[in-house]
Simulated assay, not measured.
Amino acid sequence: MKINRLFSLELERNSLRPYQIAVEVGTVFILGFIYLMAAIPKIDPGDSDAELFSSYNFVIGLTLVVMMGIFSVISATMSSKFIVDEYRGKKAILLFSYPISRKKIMETKILLVFLFTFGSMLISGAIVLAVFMITESLVPIGNDIASLGLMLTSIIYLVCYALIAAFCGIASSWIGFRKQSVIATIVASCIIMVTMCQIVAMTFFSGVAMILLLAGMGIITFLAVESMLSQARKMEI
């Protein structure tokens, strides 16, 4: 069965609308957040940390970290519904009645969660960066210069952070799937998200650190996917 048909079947069972609303709300929140961060030097110029916020590099970096955390939680929430909850009790019995390979069903669920998280964060981040850069070019709040180089760098790191957010969602669903617990998925997501945000915040716009982080999360996610596929096959027997 073609992947687009499997996606359609999956979306008939689980609506994306609640997560789309969460993305829309998150985008509005992040847009307000980035302007607040940029305005700090003018709101409280006497603060010893105000100088940090006068740099667009720092403001955008911090905003992307917060965005990554938000989308990690959205991804985990979606995973708990699309993956963990679907393999429990009567829902699992119904799922196993489909004339489709159990492995293929699991692959479809994982891919759907991954693509939604990655794609929605890219769109959300692009909107926030575009609006911020345009308004700062016309009526600047901060004291820095919104250059083309900064915009390109921000886009590259937005892609990286979107990948990490998607990886975090899959990794947390792995833990929840093993425990057969939605709560375990959310708790694991919060722990992973906080850890990732702390690591990223200490290495703003560091190419080497980003490559290592992406590689590490990529390996963990690969192992998580293989484990869930293996468990799905065992459940089929």
Results as ranks from 00 to 15, higher is better:
35 Y>R: 02
82 F>I: 02
103 K>M: 13
74 I>K: 00
25 V>E: 01
89 G>D: 06
31 L>M: 06
43 I>M: 10
103 K>H: 13
89 G>C: 03
15 S>M: 14
25 V>S: 04
8 S>N: 12
80 S>K: 02
70 I>G: 07
49 D>V: 15
74 I>G: 01
90 K>L: 08
51 E>I: 13
9 L>C: 03
41 P>Y: 02
69 G>W: 00
47 D>S: 11
55 S>F: 10
37 M>W: 08
74 I>L: 02
91 K>R: 07
73 V>C: 05
72 S>V: 11
14 N>G: 07
78 M>T: 04
22 A>F: 14
68 M>H: 05
60 I>H: 13
13 R>E: 13
8 S>Y: 13
50 A>C: 08
71 F>K: 02
85 D>A: 05
93 I>Y: 08
59 V>A: 14
7 F>P: 04
43 I>K: 06
85 D>K: 06
88 R>T: 00
98 Y>S: 11
36 L>P: 04
26 G>F: 04
33 F>Y: 04
44 D>Q: 15
103 K>R: 15
43 I>S: 09
50 A>Q: 05
37 M>A: 05
45 P>R: 02
61 G>Q: 07
59 V>H: 00
21 I>C: 10
78 M>H: 03
26 G>E: 01
100 I>G: 01
37 M>D: 00
57 N>G: 13
49 D>A: 15
72 S>D: 12
99 P>R: 08
53 F>V: 14
27 T>R: 00
52 L>S: 09
75 S>E: 00
25 V>P: 04
34 I>K: 01
43 I>T: 08
100 I>S: 03
70 I>M: 08
64 L>F: 05
104 K>Q: 10
93 I>L: 12
24 E>K: 10
40 I>K: 07
85 D>E: 07
92 A>G: 03
17 R>A: 14
68 M>D: 01
64 L>M: 13
51 E>C: 04
11 L>H: 13
33 F>K: 00
75 S>M: 06
27 T>Q: 08
36 L>G: 12
97 S>W: 10
47 D>T: 13
30 I>Y: 05
35 Y>P: 01
90 K>G: 08
58 F>E: 14
25 V>I: 07
